[in-house]
Simulated scan of single mutants.
Amino acid sequence: MMVIISYDVSTVDKSGQTRLRKVAKECQNHAQRVQNSVFEADLDYSTFLKLKDALIRLIDEEKDSLRFYYLGNNWSRRVEHVGAKRGYNPEGVIII
């Protein structure tokens, strides 16, 4: 299932800067960055739940926020891209 994950982490203090790096790193481990604080994740449900739990544990719910947009399996009809940084097809071929 395709999920869009966005976050806003307060970086007014050192602990916020650390949280921001950890949240970004966790997202990069499981998803594709499409904008600075926005990731697209094409994951099975159990992997997504683990990622969601890890992200929730990393943030300070008094200062930071996470948003999850569930696009499901027919996501390609629900995403429209305009402008720079062409999108990618997470179901396509990946060459390493």
Results as ranks from 00 to 15, higher is better:
Met1Cys: 11
Met1Ala: 10
Met1His: 09
Met2Ala: 12
Val3Glu: 05
Tyr7Arg: 13
Tyr7Val: 15
Asp8Thr: 03
Val9Met: 03
Thr11Gly: 04
Thr11Trp: 05
Lys14Ala: 06
Lys14Ile: 00
Gly16Tyr: 09
Gly16Lys: 08
Gly16Phe: 09
Leu20Asn: 13
Leu20Cys: 14
Leu20Met: 12
Lys22Pro: 00
Lys22Phe: 03
Lys22Asp: 03
Val23Cys: 13
Val23His: 14
Lys25Gln: 11
Lys25Ser: 10
Glu26Met: 07
Gln32Gly: 03
Gln32Phe: 09
Arg33Val: 06
Val38Phe: 01
Phe39Asp: 14
Phe39Met: 14
Ala41Ser: 01
Ala41Gln: 01
Leu43Asp: 02
Ser46Ile: 02
Ser46Asn: 02
Lys50Tyr: 08
Leu55Ala: 05
Ile56Leu: 02
Ile59Gly: 04
Asp60Ser: 05
Asp60Thr: 04
Glu61Ile: 02
Glu62Phe: 00
Ser65Pro: 09
Arg67Tyr: 13
Phe68Tyr: 10
Gly72Ser: 13
Arg77Asn: 12
Arg78Thr: 11
Arg78Tyr: 14
Ala84Tyr: 02
Ala84Met: 07
Lys85Phe: 00
Arg86Lys: 11
Gly87Tyr: 08
Tyr88Gln: 13
Asn89Ser: 04
Glu91Cys: 03
Glu91Tyr: 05
Gly92Pro: 05
Val93Gln: 06
Ile94Pro: 00
Ile94Glu: 09
Ile95Arg: 14
Ile96Ala: 12
